[in-house]
Design a protein around this nucleic acid. Structure first.
Lengths: 149, 149
DNA sequence: TATAATTCCTACAAGATAACTAGGGATTGG
DNA sequence: CCAATCCCTAGTTATCTTGTAGGAATTATA
């Protein structure tokens, strides 16, 4: 029941992006350096975030990424689902509803998975990127030379 | 962010056990047959449940398993944590607190993981095995010949 | 225009984990 | 005694995660 590094790294990258790309786009390289991540791997995460309209990119020299929306309008749920897919704990409770189990209506455990899914979504949909951005800036207000989140 | 088969199979096995072992212990073999699971694999799950005092076993011929407590006193959280370990979404938010991340107090994503962990635990700690047992019996009251959950 | 810095794309590889399988030992009812 | 059962653990296979690699496309800047 663990989140993968996609979700963890990707959310950290989004916070970093929110904090450092206020004026202009920032490069993947700079994010990867601050967060000590593989640049190539981060690239794949950014592709997921871009596909879900959470970030925008500028190609070419001095190019980079910035947020596609106001951080007040991006929830942690948007970010995690972009990176991880559905946060449902089983295939049979994914929102896309493509998986069908043989027990159909006779499964008593399904209600448990649905309740877990709903509670996770409720939590992450009620935290915005802006909130984490503010947390970050508060924590680092007297330590702007520290480059780790 | 998916539950493993340990959690899924194991919970189904516990419901089966709750329903079918009311009078006397039932064998692993019979559970495995009803649920179409590998007997050897189920055995490993039962070992976890036993270690956590959720089931009791009787060895020898005609032996088997039964619940170690009243199903009203067993929560789904007890069962899932016995099978999966902590339900926290990251190592850094496991209740045992052994993992330490280098960001220490400077991590803004940690509060998100804590909230997810707490909401999952709250959900599963508020459902008892008795409730699922009752659901099962209700669903199957006119179909006692159906042996699948 | 040439160059370097960047994003974009995709195939592949290594490592970790999950999901079993296998088989032998211990116990006990009939 | 023996067949049915739980008990234990080592090994194997399949799947998924976590990257690595490298080349193509784009663009600011000198």
């Amino acid at each position: 029941m663990k989140l993968s590094t996609k979700g963890r790294y990707g959310l950290q990258a989004m916070v970093d992006l929110a904090v450092y790309s206020k004026d202009k786009q920032i490069s993947l390289k700079s994010i990867a350096e601050r967060l000590c991540m593989s640049e190539n791997y981060l690239e794949q995460l950014m592709a997921l975030l871009k596909k879900n309209d959470l970030v925008t990119s500028v190609r070419g020299a001095q190019g980079g990424y910035f947020l596609a929306k106001d951080p007040n309008d991006i929830t942690i749920g948007d970010i995690l689902r972009a990176l991880e897919g559905s946060l449902a704990p089983t295939d049979c409770t994914c929102e896309d509803n493509t998986y069908h189990c043989s027990l159909d209506g006779k499964c008593v455990t399904r209600s448990v998975w649905e309740k877990i899914r709903d509670s996770i979504n409720k939590v992450v949909d009620n935290i915005t990127l802006k909130q984490l951005m503010d947390d970050y800036e508060k924590i680092n207000e007297n330590a702007s030379h520290i480059y780790y989140i």
